[in-house]
Design a protein around this nucleic acid. Structure first.
Lengths: 192, 192, 192, 192
DNA sequence: TATGAATGAGCGTTCATTCAT
DNA sequence: TATGAATGAACGCTCATTCAT
């Protein structure tokens, strides 16, 4: 516990985040403006930068929180027992990740942190994603010759591939879920 | 004949590209500034945009050319017949793609073109990558239950995953080639 | 002739300077805001900084121009032949220099340039001041035992001293002109 | 007894001043930051302003104290009896005043106090300077036709002029002491 | 084609100072 | 006295891109 933050500090931070969410609600992530956030929150610009290193730091927090909530949702209840169920469980999350090109790019950029000290909210969710899917692996009739962990990493790799192609003109005939299903069926298929 | 370019035009374009390469040589891709390129090439700023739609168009050309050369290299000779060979064949390409975080992000962003009409040099290389790897699939003892094409897409997905983790502090204990090998062995392993 | 500036460049610069003068007219030098200048001139902020290194650079130009005009005025006609005439000739200039504490401080700060390359409009006027006064020295019954140049430097020193005391609560009982006269009479008095 | 200060109060003040001196030692006057001072002293920012009206008040105290010490030094022993001696007596003081452009500007700004009620440490030293030099006037063979007080004001004016030119690229061929000597010889020379 | 001045919109910064606790 | 989060109001900057010549 480095900083047992004061009440006022927490309130201000909450105000800023709430206002940022409101702005995003209205115009999307890409259109978020620091100026609008501070104006709406009724605080000074300097205060914003006392709370967040820069705009991207706030963005990471907001997007990370959203992804965390969607991961919570995906984790709730009994685990999925086949590929279709896995896909529909992850659907809300994948849907959010691809909601805006800007969001997808930002998530990819922050998914890997440059240094351990800098591991942010988004990088965290990538870890949670793996953990979650790893936990699902014993529940279905999937291949057992490789570790659940490796299978989960593969699921993530295919999810990213499918999402990236989502933004790709060449491949839009085939929608995300269908492509993802093809990948997963091949990847998770039990071996002999 | 779309562009029966004049000699001077071609010279200017060549000067710009040469200067851009020189700038990148010195300071890397991320630090490339249009201003420096035109100054070094001895032309006006406007001229730059008469030759390239925007800065990223030049970037795509430069990076695309580099990737194409590396793909040519990977395609030369007899195809690889096992996972280790595949990996070492693709090594120079993957190495280039991960030379800078900026380059990796840019490549990913352009790997899917925004519109069919705009398929650029980088998107092209992703297609070539698939084709190349697809051609390698019959050469080794890999799974035959799914199409070579799908296998190739998987190889690409795993390459991207492994490269992304390359930039991630959390996972740097395991280097790219080793992780990629683990992925490919699981992905390409023959089924019963 | 390094830059035989284009017509448009000159026009933009003139617009900016004109607008700055208008702003100062209204609210004084200290209240000048870059934002108001560019808004009034109808140009982009970036343009301002393409023309002037920073706000102070514009300030130097404006104040330097004003001082130059007042020096021209002081230089016009037959030179003053006694201390009283010198003082009244320089009065408009000294009056301007002390019009605002901000202006006085800025002039002093820029009166000496750190490097030859940085000698700006204000430093120039200090040189002109010396030259002008030097030229007046043979016209009156002043001491002849030291060079006109040295006398002029003394006049400047006493002017600065008297102006500085102008801003000083302790010494405001005696106004600038009276104090300056006392100094000059002692300084310029013929020797034996 | 205006301030029968408590022990802790005095200690805090001393800590702040000590830390400020340490900061200045390291990085000079201009680089002094309230933040660094309070951090080093281990107190909160607000505490600083409970002890000093503002940052400049501390600056004035520090610089004023330094100047006072140097004036004490200049005042010690028998008074100087010629121009050379005057100059060497004042040398340490002038040297300090010109140690940084920032210091020189600040001293000039505070040499005249904004209001009688606010005469600060620096303005005080200017008064002491005049008094000190006034006391030296009868000791040498200087002009007697004007008051010692006026002569002292002139000495100060010339000192300032010489110091100002010290910072000026145009005039650095001639160093401070030499220029100051030229001025004083002319100013203090006995008349007929 | 070539020119290069102008654009533009927002970000991040600055840091002494205030004020509610 | 002491605390430290919050203030504030511009400034300077960025730099790819446009457009009139």
């Amino acid at each position: 516990m480095i900083k047992p933050k004061q009440k006022r500090t927490l309130e201000t931070r909450a105000k800023l985040i709430a206002q940022a969410k409101a702005c995003i609600q209205e115009a999307g992530y890409e259109a978020l403006r620091v100026e609008d956030v501070v104006a709406g929150a009724g605080v000074a610009k300097g205060t914003f930068f006392a709370h967040f290193r820069d705009k991207d730091a706030l963005m990471e927090i907001l997007i990370g929180a959203e992804m965390d909530a969607l991961l919570d949702q995906a984790a709730a209840g009994a685990g999925p027992t086949d590929v279709e169920q896995i896909i529909s469980r992850l659907h809300p999350l994948h849907s959010f990740v691809t909601c805006e090109r800007y969001v997808f790019d930002l998530i990819l950029r922050y998914s890997g942190a440059a240094a351990v000290a800098e591991i942010g909210p988004i990088a965290m969710t990538f870890g949670r994603y793996i953990e979650l899917v790893t936990g699902w692996m014993p529940l279905g009739d999937y291949r057992k010759d490789v570790s659940a962990d490796l299978l989960a990493e593969g699921v993530q790799a295919f999810a990213v591939q499918a999402m990236a192609l989502q933004f790709c003109a060449l491949h839009q005939t085939q929608r995300f879920d269908k492509r993802f299903a093809r990948y997963l069926k091949a990847w998770l298929a039990p071996v002999s």
